[in-house]
Measured scan of single mutants.
Amino acid sequence: GTLHLNGVTVKVPSLEKAIKAAKKFAKKYNLEVQVHGNTVHVH
């Protein structure tokens, strides 16, 4: 999967790991997580 954090793109081995990391990051910075196919966006 691919993880987008505020314009930074990170390749992640699995989508589940990407979503987990995204949710952790989003919670910390009070951001929103959106999943588009195998790409996770945090903004």
Rank of each mutant, 00 (worst) to 15 (best):
N38Q: 06
L31V: 07
E16P: 06
P13E: 11
E16Q: 10
E32Q: 10
A26Y: 03
E32V: 13
Q34N: 07
H41E: 14
P13I: 13
A18H: 01
V12D: 02
V8M: 12
V8A: 08
V33I: 13
K23C: 14
F25I: 11
K20Q: 13
H4A: 04
G1I: 15
E32S: 11
G37Y: 05
G7S: 05
F25Q: 03
A18P: 00
V35H: 02
A21P: 00
L3H: 03
P13F: 04
V35M: 04
H36V: 14
G1D: 09
H43Q: 09
V12R: 03
A22Q: 00
S14Y: 08
Y29S: 03
V40M: 03
S14N: 12
F25M: 09
G37E: 06
K23Y: 07
V12N: 04
Y29F: 10
L15M: 08
N6I: 12
H41T: 14
G1W: 14
G7M: 08
V33L: 09
L5S: 04
E16Y: 05
V8Q: 06
A18Y: 07
N38H: 08
T2C: 15
F25C: 13
S14T: 09
V42K: 02
Q34I: 15
K20G: 04
V10T: 05
T9S: 11
A18N: 00
K17Q: 12
N30I: 04
L5V: 11
H4V: 14
I19T: 01
F25D: 02
K28M: 09
S14R: 05
V40N: 01
S14P: 02
F25G: 02
I19R: 00
Y29G: 04
K11Q: 11
H41R: 13
V42D: 00
K11M: 13
V12P: 04
L5A: 05
T2I: 15
L15E: 00
E16V: 12
V10A: 04
L15Y: 04
K24R: 13
G7L: 07
F25E: 02
Q34T: 15
T2N: 11
Y29C: 10
N30F: 11
N6M: 15
A21G: 03
V33C: 10
V35T: 03
H36A: 09
A18W: 10
V40F: 01
K23M: 12
G1V: 14
V35S: 01
V42E: 02
V42M: 11
V12Y: 15
L3W: 01
H36G: 02
K17Y: 11
L31W: 08
K20M: 10
H4D: 07
L5N: 02
V33G: 00
G1N: 07
V8N: 06
T2Q: 12
H41A: 13
T39E: 14
H41D: 07
L15Q: 00
S14W: 10
N30S: 06
G1P: 11
A18T: 08
N30P: 06
P13R: 14
H43E: 03
L15D: 00
H36I: 15
H43I: 14
I19D: 00
V33H: 00
V8Y: 13
S14E: 04
K28F: 08
L5H: 05
V8C: 15
E32T: 13
A26G: 06
E16A: 14
V10L: 11
E16M: 05
G37A: 03
L31A: 05
K24S: 08
V8P: 02
K11T: 11
P13S: 14
A22M: 12
Y29D: 02
S14V: 04
V35C: 08
E32D: 09
K28W: 12
V42Q: 01
V10I: 15
F25V: 06
K20A: 14
V40D: 00
L3A: 04
A21C: 14
A21Y: 12
T39P: 02
T9G: 04
H36N: 12
N6W: 15
V10W: 09
L15V: 08
N6R: 08
V35N: 01
K17F: 10
A18Q: 01
E32Y: 08
V10N: 02
T39Q: 10
F25L: 14
E16K: 12
K20W: 05
A21W: 15
H36D: 12
H4K: 05
V12G: 03
H36Q: 09
V12H: 07
A22G: 02
Q34C: 15
K17A: 14
V35K: 02
V35I: 10
H41C: 15
T39K: 07
Q34Y: 14
L31P: 02
A26P: 00
E32W: 08
L31S: 01
L3P: 03
H36L: 13
N6G: 12
G1L: 12
E32P: 02
T2W: 15
H41N: 10
F25K: 04
Q34R: 10
H43Y: 13
V42R: 01
A22C: 13
A18M: 10
E16F: 03
P13W: 06
G37V: 08
V42F: 13
K20T: 10
A26K: 04
G1A: 14
L5P: 03
A22N: 00
A18I: 09
K23N: 08
N38Y: 06
H43R: 11
V12E: 01
A22V: 15
V33T: 01
V10P: 01
P13Q: 13
G7R: 03
L15N: 00
H4L: 11
N38P: 04
S14M: 06
A22D: 00
A21T: 06
Y29R: 04
V12T: 06
V8I: 14
A26T: 00
H41S: 15
V33E: 00
P13M: 08
N30C: 11
Y29A: 05
G37D: 05
T9W: 13
P13Y: 06
L5C: 15
K24E: 14
I19V: 06
G1Y: 15
V8G: 05
N6V: 09
L5F: 15
K11L: 11
K28R: 08
A21E: 07
L15W: 06
T39F: 09
L31R: 00
L31Y: 07
P13L: 08
I19A: 02
L15P: 01
L3F: 01
L15H: 01
K27D: 13
K17W: 14
T2G: 05
S14K: 03
L31C: 13
K28E: 09
H43F: 14
G7H: 08
V33P: 00
K23V: 11
K17E: 12
V40S: 01
L3C: 10
K20R: 11
K11H: 14
L31I: 05
K11G: 06
V40W: 01
N30G: 15
T39L: 09
N38F: 08
K11S: 11
H41I: 15
L3I: 13
A22T: 03
A26Q: 03
P13N: 12
K11W: 15
E32G: 04
K28V: 06
V10G: 03
E32N: 09
A21D: 06
L3D: 03
Q34M: 13
H41W: 10
Q34D: 08
K17R: 12
Q34P: 00
F25S: 02
N30E: 07
K27L: 05
A26M: 09
E16W: 06
A18V: 07
H41Y: 14
E32K: 07
V8D: 03
N6A: 10
G7C: 15
T9K: 10
I19G: 00
A21M: 13
T2D: 06
N6E: 06
T39C: 14
Q34W: 14
V40C: 03
V8H: 13
T9P: 07
V40T: 01
K24Q: 10
V12K: 04
L31Q: 03
H43G: 10
P13G: 13
G37K: 02
L15I: 11
K11Y: 14
L3G: 02
H4S: 08
G1H: 10
N38R: 10
V10C: 15
P13V: 13
K11R: 12
T39A: 09
G7D: 05
G1C: 15
V40Y: 00
L5I: 15
L3V: 11
L15R: 02
H4G: 04
V42A: 05
K28A: 06
K20Y: 04
K28G: 03
I19L: 11
A22H: 00
P13C: 15
K28N: 05
H36P: 01
Q34K: 11
T39S: 12
G7P: 02
A18C: 13
L15K: 01
A22I: 15
A22W: 07
H4T: 07
V10H: 06
K23D: 05
V33D: 00
L3N: 02
G37M: 04
T2A: 09
K24T: 05
E16D: 10
N6F: 15
V42W: 04
Y29Q: 04
K24C: 15
G37P: 02
T9F: 13
N30L: 06
N38C: 08
N30W: 11
V35E: 00
H43W: 13
H43S: 09
K24D: 11
A18D: 00
N30A: 08
L5W: 15
G37N: 06
T9D: 07
P13A: 14
V10Q: 03
K17N: 10
N6T: 05
H41G: 04
K28L: 10
A21S: 05
K11C: 14
G37F: 03
